[in-house]
Amino acid sequence: MRKSYTIIFALVVLLFTAMGVDALESKAIERNNGAYAFADWAETNGDVTTCTYLSVTETDDGTDIYVSMWEYNGMTGESYDAYGYMFTEDDIFSIDKKLDSASLSAVDIGVEKWFLDYNTGEYVYETGTVTVEADWTGIGDISRGSSRYVSRDGDYVFRSTDNSLSREATVTGLIDGNDPGTQSFASMSRFKTAYMSMEK
C-alpha cells in the first residue's frame, strides 16, 4: 500500500511539473531551405552606359525575382532607372544541388521606370513589362559558410543559424530578348536557415 502511494505521488509531481512548463514556456521554431542566384551586367555603347542586375531566390513558399536597370547618356545627360519585382509559386527556377548550373525560365515582370527629361530637368514616371531569362554555370570551387546568432532579453531568447554553399558562375541572360552586356559578377548558392524563439 505504501508503494502505491509513492507511485501516485510521483505521478502527481510529474503532472504539475509538465503543467508548469506549458504555462511558463512558449517556443516557436521555423526552418527554411532555399537557393539563390544573381548576376550583374554592364555595357557601354558610345556615350551610353547600361547596368543590369538580376536576382532569384527560391524557398519552400515560392520564387522571388528582382531586376533593376540603369542607363546614362554621357552626351545628353539623360538617364533612366527601372525596377521590377515579382513572386510566383510556378516552377520557373531550377538549380543543381552541386551548384553546377541554374536556370530561370522566361518570365514577364512588371517594372517601374523613372526617366530624367534633359529639357525640363524633371523625372517622368512610367510603368511597363520586361521579359527576363537567364542560365548560370558554376565555375571554381564551392565555398561553405555558416553563422549563428543568439539574443536574450529577460525571459525571451532568440536563436538563428544559417548554413550555405556558394559558387561563382558565368551567366547568359536576355532582357526583352536582348543581351544585357558584359557580365560583371554572378554567383549561385544554396542555404538552410533555422529560427527559434522561446519565452519563459
Results as ranks from 00 to 15, higher is better:
Ile7Tyr: 14
Tyr5Glu: 12
Tyr66Asp: 11
Phe87Gly: 04
Tyr36Asn: 07
Ser68Asp: 11
Leu14His: 04
Glu43Gln: 10
Ala37Phe: 01
Asp22Gly: 08
Arg159His: 04
Phe185Arg: 06
Met19Ser: 09
Ala82Pro: 08
Thr57Trp: 00
Val130Leu: 07
Tyr80Asp: 01
Ser151Thr: 08
Leu174Met: 12
Asn119Arg: 14
Thr161Leu: 00
Arg148Leu: 00
Ala82Thr: 11
Asp162Ala: 08
Asp108Ala: 15
Ser55Pro: 11
Ser184Cys: 08
Ile142Phe: 02
Glu199Tyr: 06
Val132Ile: 15
Ser160Ile: 04
Asp64Tyr: 12
Ser105Leu: 09
Glu78Met: 10
Thr182Asn: 02
Arg190Asn: 10
Thr17Ala: 15
Met69Phe: 09
Asp96His: 06
Thr172Arg: 04
Thr129Gln: 14
Asn163Leu: 05
Asp141Ala: 10
Ala82Tyr: 03
Tyr83Leu: 10
Thr17His: 07
Ile92Val: 15
Ser166Gly: 13
Trp70Pro: 00
Gly154Gln: 11
Tyr195Ser: 09
Phe158Arg: 13
Ser68Tyr: 12
Asp176Gln: 06
Trp114Thr: 06
Pro180Phe: 02
Phe158Pro: 00
Ala10His: 01
Met19Glu: 06
Gly62Asn: 13
Trp41Thr: 02
Asn119Glu: 15
Met19Gln: 12
Glu43Cys: 01
Thr52Arg: 03
Met86Val: 07
Met196Glu: 15
Glu112Gly: 06
Thr52Lys: 02
Asn45His: 03
Lys98Ala: 14
Thr120Asn: 13
Lys98Asp: 15
Met75His: 01
Phe38Leu: 05
Ser197Gly: 14
Thr131Asp: 09
Leu99Ser: 02
Asp153Tyr: 08
Asp81Ile: 11
Gly84Gln: 05
Leu15Ile: 13
Asn45Thr: 10
Arg159Phe: 05
Ser26Gln: 07
Val157Leu: 14
Thr137Arg: 09
Thr137Asp: 09
Ile8Gly: 11
Gly20Gln: 05
Gly181Pro: 02
Val150Cys: 08
Ile109Pro: 09
Asp141Phe: 02
Leu11Asn: 11
Thr161Val: 10
Glu133Asp: 15
Gly84Tyr: 05
Val12Gln: 01
Pro180His: 03
Asp179Met: 06
Thr17Cys: 13
Gln183Phe: 01
Lys113Ala: 04
Tyr149Asp: 14
Met198Pro: 06
Tyr80Asn: 07
Ala39Ile: 03
Asp100Arg: 07
Lys27Pro: 02
Arg31Gly: 05
Ala194Asp: 08
Tyr118Gln: 12
Ser103Trp: 04
Ala169Pro: 05
Ala134Cys: 10
Gly20Ile: 00
Ser147Phe: 04
Ala82Trp: 04
Ile29His: 05
Thr127Leu: 05
Gly181Gln: 03
Glu126Gln: 12
Arg144Gly: 11
Ile175Asn: 05
Arg152Ser: 13
Val124Asn: 12
Glu122Trp: 09
Thr88Cys: 01
Ile7Glu: 12
Tyr195His: 08
Arg2Met: 00
Lys3Glu: 10
Ile142Asn: 02
Gly62Asp: 07
Thr52Ser: 12
Val21Ser: 05
Thr17Asn: 11
Val48Cys: 03
Ala35His: 03
Tyr125Ser: 14
Ile92Phe: 03
Ser164Thr: 14
Asp61Gln: 09
Leu116Asp: 06
Ser143Trp: 06
Lys27Trp: 01
Thr57Ile: 12
Ser187Phe: 01
Asp108Trp: 04
Asp60His: 07
Leu104Ala: 11
Arg167Leu: 07
Lys98Ile: 00
Tyr36Phe: 13
Lys3Gln: 09
Glu43Leu: 06
Met19His: 03
Arg31Phe: 07
